[in-house]
């Protein structure tokens, strides 16, 4: 019995067990504080689905050897561009969602390619460089958002030049995936379409990693010297990984935004890379090893913690508006913890 228990802990990983216990403890205290458990669980499911694809974007980066893609904002701004184009074209429903993705794909592919070329020149310090590439991309796009020639009144400020900071999707494709085939069980709203889309993307990634290209890309990431001796072009594999990561970042932000109900421009994408990195690390990945299970478990735990801890904290300490402070402490605390796990994984 003891042995089996130890093996279970070893397989699941002690850190994940601790975080899971903390999550469950929060749920229990939420129950005693008379918080609406069913809506907390619904929120957790929604947030898992909406962030999942962004976290999945870490996988090709890790497999191809560039490590954790802190430069995710680069992909995110590509996705935002695609989204804006779909609104400019005044498309609604599924058409708008699909056009948003289709427009952002080639942009993200080109940007990802160039980004990959750059990462190939800074081998060994990709993660640091990527962080600042992400920051720079956001700042550069701040200028672009002011200058881009969009005309739709939903996108532009009513007075003056430039685009709005948040652009509503109401009447476009707000909650398109969330509401697809959703159902209620024990008072918990299950966003079926959103979760299905996330799982479908995971399945595609699973299949890709089993293609010849995928296998070679992973080999290049695990052991570049081995790959070179096998005739694999390591730099090319890294570019493929970077492109895929950037593309998934673009798709991810569109999925995120349709669930959130708004496109957020300017500073909003700045820290999104960190949240995605933290989620996959909590799931048990490291900078050189990541599986789809890490993505799913990590996203659920990270978002679950965020969702449940805030109302609980607010309930316990009622004075003032604690929610924003608690959010920052919890989110950055988790990121800090998971960054200590970069090199050797979550276990």
């Amino acid at each position: 019995m003891k042995e089996r228990f130890q093996r279970f802990i070893h397989q699941f990983g002690l850190p994940r067990l601790i975080i899971l216990s903390f999550f469950l403890a929060l749920l229990v205290s939420a129950y005693f504080l008379k918080l609406p458990l069913n809506s907390l669980v619904s929120d957790t499911l929604v947030r898992t689905g909406m962030n999942g694809v962004l976290v999945l974007a870490m996988v090709p980066g890790i497999h191809s050897g560039i490590g954790l893609n802190f430069g995710l904002p680069l992909g995110i701004v590509c996705g935002l561009l695609g989204g804006l184009v779909s609104i400019e074209m005044n498309l609604i429903g599924i058409n708008g969602f699909i056009i948003a993705i289709l427009v952002s794909l080639p942009i993200a592919a080109v940007i990802g390619y160039l980004y990959g070329l750059m990462l190939n020149r800074v081998k060994g310090s990709e993660m640091l460089v990527a962080t600042y590439v992400g920051f720079s991309a956001v700042s550069l796009m701040n200028i672009a958002w002011l200058l881009l020639p969009f005309h739709s009144p939903e996108i532009k400020w009513p007075i003056g030049d430039g685009l709005r900071t948040t652009i509503t999707l109401t009447g476009k494709y707000d909650k398109l995936l969330n509401n697809f085939l959703d159902f209620k069980i024990f008072g918990v709203m299950v966003p079926t379409g959103l979760l299905l889309f996330f799982l479908a993307m995971c399945l595609l990634m699973f299949l890709f990693l089993r293609t010849r290209t995928g296998v070679m890309m992973s080999a290049a990431g695990i052991n570049p010297k081995f790959a070179a001796a096998t005739g694999i072009q390591v730099d090319r594999a890294r570019i493929i990984g970077t492109m895929l990561s950037t593309i998934l970042g673009a798709v991810g932000i569109i999925v995120y935004s349709q669930s959130y109900g708004f496109f957020q421009l300017y500073q909003a994408p700045m820290m999104m890379g960190f949240a995605a990195v933290a989620a996959i690390l909590i799931g048990g990945a490291s900078s050189h090893k990541a599986t789809l299970m890490h993505v799913i478990i990590g996203t659920f735990l990270f978002q679950g913690l965020l969702t449940v801890s805030l109302p609980v904290a607010n309930k316990i300490v009622t004075e003032g508006n604690l929610s924003e402070i608690a959010r920052i402490i919890v989110q950055n605390g988790i990121i800090l913890y998971s960054l200590t796990k970069v090199s050797n994984g979550g276990d």
């Binding site: 010849r212 296998v215 080999a219 695990i222 081995f226």
Partner: peptide, 23 residues
């Protein structure tokens, strides 16, 4: 260092070159 993917399975190690070179 060069000869093996240490964390990959024996079978993957055996076929990977042939997969890449001869498809």
């Amino acid at each position: 260092g060069v000869g093996l993917l240490l964390d990959s399975s024996i079978e993957d190690n055996i076929v990977i070159s042939s997969m890449h070179i001869h498809k």
